[in-house]
Design a protein around this nucleic acid. Structure first.
Lengths: 211, 211
DNA sequence: CGGAAAACCACACCGCTGGTGCGGAAACCG
DNA sequence: CGGTTTCCGCACCAGCGGTGTGGTTTTCCG
């Protein structure tokens, strides 16, 4: 993952990323408060002053962590569903393909999913300021809108067999991911998250697919 | 909630419960590490010595918190599904009624759901010892078994219309609750969790209900 | 190549927190 | 009434998170 040969990134950004990598892993494993700066700088092999050069205080670290996480997730989903739409023009089919790709991506991760930063914020909300909490909320709103748009397009073409709240259904995707990660972490089960995603896929399929 | 008139419980157990109440709320809002003993005793209006009389150290507090939480959840679910089974002998119908009761119970909570202790452990796992982590895992295993048994009984009577992994479907209940709580906390939306539970209910209904 | 800016180090400092220890003193209960 | 339970008061400590100041090296760019 590290670019040892090519180094187009300025040096500062690289150590900054290293700090964020280490901090992210620690926050998702122990929580934000238990993530000590002392520990981060030890692992990153820098000094405390070096850390505070990149982040004014721990609050700024949290903000950067969340922003980076949200952006990476957006890129991932954009990519997956763009690939799905290349394969088909049908909204339902694209949705199903997209979630299959999503499940595969989750299953092919090297380790069990380390966790979602947004959930970490949700469960330690009072440790963060309003801006971080807003960022987390907006991130989830984006997910809802993303899936809601797809479902709207589907519902127009294929009327659902059951009366259904499309907002709730759109949220189900987020919910499954968040909850799936929780259980995957508890069980240390790599495949659980993918299974849950495929279950949502099956649900949408049976709901909209003509009989 | 407090029993001011009737006090069948010995005094010690009452303050112990008060400590646990305060600690639980704090852990679910700020995380375990950020929950300081100093803060707990201030809110409980006791001294540090009083706290350490009830709990040898912070680890024991975590253990007690989790045990109490798991037990309360078990009692709740036992009650809901016992009531459901009183109403009908049909396994599918009982399942659907049980989840409707569950959704109603979640919607009728005074505040938005404060959070699940198990998820808090999952997202701060490295802060806890092996015993606490095992407790959390076993709690989720119980949920899986509980729902799996019901689904088995349903599948025998009503063959599902789609090929489905019953373990994954059983886990979907836990996943929806955990993920639903995360989103409910983020959105401060009281109804979201109930909506997700009803969605699972609809899914099971369409899967098994004869056409 | 030179100088400015970026990136980082050394060190000193403070307050808070988890935790220990001991000597009590109420409150409860048989 | 006497013993147990349930706390309080207080003193103390080691460790860590977090901040600030000032200096040094490294990198970058014209």
């Amino acid at each position: 993952m590290s670019n040892t040969l090519t180094k187009p990134t300025p040096k500062g950004a690289r150590t900054r990323d290293r700090i964020l990598d280490i901090a992210e892993a620690s926050v998702l494993a122990k929580g934000f408060a238990a993530t000590s700066i002392e520990e981060i700088i030890a692992e990153a092999e820098i000094t405390k002053s070096g850390f505070f050069y990149h982040f004014r205080d721990k609050t700024q670290l949290a903000r950067a962590l969340l922003q980076r996480f949200l952006q990476a997730d957006d890129v991932l989903l954009d990519d997956l569903f763009a690939r799905a739409r290349e394969l088909t023009d049908d909204p339902l089919h694209a949705y199903l393909v997209g979630f299959r790709l999503f499940a595969e991506a989750m299953e092919e991760m090297e380790d069990v999913h380390p966790g979602c930063m947004v959930a970490a914020v949700a469960y330690q909300a009072r440790q963060f300021d309003a801006e971080v909490r807003t960022l987390a909320r907006d991130g989830m709103v984006n997910w809802r809108l993303r899936f809601r748009e797809m479902l709207d397009a589907i519902a127009v073409k294929y009327p659902p067999h059951e009366e259904i709240d499309l907002d709730a259904l759109a949220d189900q995707a987020s919910v499954l991911v968040e909850g799936g990660i929780v259980l995957a972490k508890l069980f240390e089960d790599q495949t659980l998250l993918a299974g849950q995603i495929l279950l949502h896929r099956t649900f949408v399929k049976t709901l909209f697919s003509p009989r």
